[in-house]
Design a protein around this nucleic acid. Structure first.
Lengths: 265, 265
DNA sequence: CCAAAAGTGTTAGGGCTACACCCATGT
DNA sequence: ACATGGGTGTAGCCCTAACACTTTTGG
């Protein structure tokens, strides 16, 4: 993290000192009232997952997030935050909503702030949050906790714990957005590894859409779009018949998205 | 406007005083770094239009906008701003993008700020803008300038002047969003008066999509959706054959949107 | 009576849906 | 051998796109 250089020396004294110190630093260097919350989607074992952080010395989970430097572009801030959490160089990032209700943090806020050592003196009373979602290749991510958290790990979207603040709601909105954008955003391209099988791609679509698709129709449709290249290689090692591996053809993929051709009725 | 009570007494002294005073007041009562910019779409004479403001004593035009009170919900601020500009009670409002590049205002900024009497002492160096678009019934709007502008009026989207800041770009993004959302947002419902003719609705779709539609297919499709009610009444007075008037059936309309049924290939 | 716009039906083709069986592989 | 998931073709239907003439009205 950019703003606090020496964590160890701080940590020994007051369990809340890192947080207090952190927010003081942020106040000085970042934009007030505004924060980023990032919903990082990954796909693994046929499940859609999101990255969550566990706050230091608690069992409380929340979305990875951060703040925007006073002279930093908003997108750059989101990229910076996610690079720190995931270790990825490039990532697909999309702003999807501004959460700006005045009462946004009022409800469980006193509770949360006390719990997390949030000092009202050093922080503003309300926060407007810019919601970003990211699509990442699960296999390439190294989840890393930040200064305020002990743990960073994946959770299946349909088995989330109760999160701090309105973060459950933020994830819901991100999911809805993802569903709607499936036909014109490079969802498959960013969520899957370079090589993948057709059933994996189908599972991905099914998971996001929340309903089963017919494998024959799926095959026909995907192949008809000419965006997939079938490799000689097959995925070995799993039990049963080994499926072919495929790879996206980036140019054709882009074009199909332009035309909105990847819609599923 | 909320922040300055007595404009007249201020205006006589320094041509830039109202602006300076305005920004000082805003600094005290509103959230720094953040602003709202609203693209208000209306439809009239078969043209899609947007509301623009002309800054006091200049020929410079920009989008209506405003700031968010420190304890005000973001949506509420946008509604407040647009009620002041349009006189409408209810309006359909949708946030569509955050414009947050650090260099957003850097280019023509010195120029613009000097021109508009923007005092760097009393205002922060950069602004992140929340983009909202609104869909309004042109016939019900009374355009009203704000404290900093002399004039508020409609401009056809395809004949816009060069606007201040990045407002031309903001309108472009709003239009793209509108196009994409045509199939699941109540666009026709909000842009047209209660009663309208089928050709008017078709013109609206054609304008937003930027291409002509076949009248027979349009008729068939709209009628097939069961969202329109044909009235006995016809529009008289125009030359030539008088068209029937129609009205939306709100429940059916909502449902068609849910199903994304209003897409045009 | 003429000019301009409104209103309307049919047909052909493509894409979507529904549906069932054999194949390959590891245990 | 068997259990499990992978891979594939066909037929009906609906939706879409293409296409032209008649009616109404005001001038």
């Amino acid at each position: 993290m950019l703003y606090v250089k020496n964590t160890e020396s701080i940590r020994c004294m007051d369990p809340f000192l890192p947080a207090k110190r952190y927010f003081q630093e942020i106040s000085a260097t970042s934009i007030h009232y505004l924060s980023l919350d990032c919903v990082v989607f990954g796909f693994h074992h046929n499940e859609l997952k999101v990255l969550l952080l566990r706050w230091k010395d608690t069992e409380e989970w929340s979305l990875p997030g951060g703040f925007i430097g006073k002279r930093e572009s908003v997108d750059a801030a989101a990229i910076r935050v996610l690079q720190e959490r995931t270790g990825l160089e490039h990532l697909f990032l999309q702003q999807f909503h501004v959460f700006g209700a005045a009462e946004r943090y009022d409800q469980d806020d006193t509770w949360a702030r006390t719990k997390l050592g949030w000092d009202p003196e050093s922080w503003s009373e309300r926060t407007i949050s810019l919601g970003y979602y990211a699509l990442v290749d699960y296999t390439k991510v190294t989840p890393m906790p930040d200064l305020l958290s002990d743990e960073c790990r994946w959770w299946a979207v349909d088995q989330l714990p109760r999160l701090l603040f309105d973060h459950n709601h933020i994830i819901e909105v991100a999911l809805k957005t993802l569903r709607r954008q499936l036909s014109w955003q490079p969802v498959g391209y960013n969520l899957l590894p370079d090589k993948f099988t057709l059933p994996e791609l189908q599972r991905l679509y099914e998971t996001i859409l929340g309903r089963p698709l017919d494998p024959r129709n799926f095959h026909k449709k995907m192949m008809g779009l000419n965006i997939l290249e079938r490799l000689e290689e097959r995925r070995r090692g799993g039990a049963y018949k080994s499926p072919y591996l495929y790879r996206f053809r980036p140019e054709a993929y882009e074009q199909a998205l332009e035309e909105g051709a990847m819609a599923f009725g």
